[in-house]
């Protein structure tokens, strides 16, 4: 009897495997269920006292999306939806707003969504200097709004617990254009402040991308100077050093190498796409 039961169980598992549609995608697979959860989140008492559990389950879904190394536009859309939904269930959950600002801000097309989420975070956590700081960063580097960025950074500086160097950073925001060096100094501060290893990994990845962009912009300026002096683009990057324009060819922080093509266009062999928000 027992053996027969085990055999039937095995048979049902095989049938289930056969009928399974394959690995679940986090994008657009569960449309109807998603719509229901989103609708419930707009009236959280419909969660029947399980608002926090719902917030956590949606949050876990958001992390699965955010954890991908590269996100497609559809995945950014889904991430924004999940973070909004989780925040509807539990507006006290501060990490939702920080993650939203951080990851959605990576996509120039989703900068406004990142900002909207951070604004919600600020309304719910007016005492959190980190949310004001992230708001300033998003305004300044993602949306190019220096004045708003400086104001948010100045607000962050006035809050208890904020580091003493924030007023200086706010002043820099007001006075400088979008510059990778400034972005890097902000990211270094964020990295020093961050204790959570997962958010730290995102910040470090971001800092690496900004550093590559900084090097590429330096190389482009050097190529322009070389072209102006010699009437042609250099054949290789060491030529810029030999001509005395560069002290040395920078080493890419992600372990890749910088290269130059025949038309004088510089690029990194690791990062195919430029960080659009900082391209001038």
């Amino acid at each position: 009897m027992l053996i027969a039961a085990v055999l039937f169980l095995g048979a049902s598992a095989l049938i289930s495997l056969r009928l399974s549609p394959g690995p679940m995608s986090w994008v657009g697979e569960n449309g109807a269920a998603d719509n229901l959860v989103v609708a419930i989140s707009r009236h959280p008492s419909l969660a029947l006292g399980f608002q926090n559990a719902c917030a956590d389950l949606v949050w876990l879904g958001a992390i699965q999306v955010a954890g991908n190394r590269t996100l497609s536009p559809a995945e950014y859309d889904r991430l924004a939806l999940l973070l909004d939904t989780a925040a509807n269930f539990d507006p006290r959950f501060e990490t939702i707003f920080l993650l939203g600002g951080l990851v959605l801000g990576e996509s120039p097309a989703h900068g406004r969504r990142a900002l909207a989420l951070l604004e919600r975070g600020r309304a719910n956590h007016p005492e959190s200097w980190q949310i004001h700081f992230y708001l300033g960063f998003t305004h300044y580097f993602i949306l190019g709004q220096a004045a708003e960025g400086g104001r948010a950074m100045a607000d962050a500086a006035r809050l208890p617990g904020s580091p003493g160097y924030l007023p200086g950073l706010a002043a820099r925001m007001f006075s400088e254009g979008r510059d990778p060096e400034t972005a890097l100094s902000f990211l270094e501060i964020m990295i020093r402040q961050e204790k959570d290893p997962s958010r730290l990994a995102i910040l470090e990845r971001r800092a690496g991308e900004v550093a590559v962009e900084r090097d590429l912009q330096r190389l482009e300026r050097a190529v322009d100077a070389y072209r102006a002096a010699n009437g042609r683009a250099p054949a290789s990057l060491p030529e810029l050093v030999r001509a005395g324009i560069l002290a040395r060819v920078p080493v890419a922080p992600d372990g890749g190498a910088y290269q130059i093509d025949q038309e004088g266009k510089v690029s990194s062999d690791r990062s195919r796409n430029r960080l659009k928000v900082l391209v001038k």
Partner: peptide, 24 residues
């Protein structure tokens, strides 16, 4: 185990889902 999938304050998942279980 579910808490390990999260990040930030991992222990909140234990409290949230644990209290939800007690309730349900």
């Amino acid at each position: 185990f579910l808490a390990n999938l999260s990040f930030g304050d991992l222990a909140r998942v234990v409290v949230d889902l644990g209290l939800a279980s007690i309730h349900l």
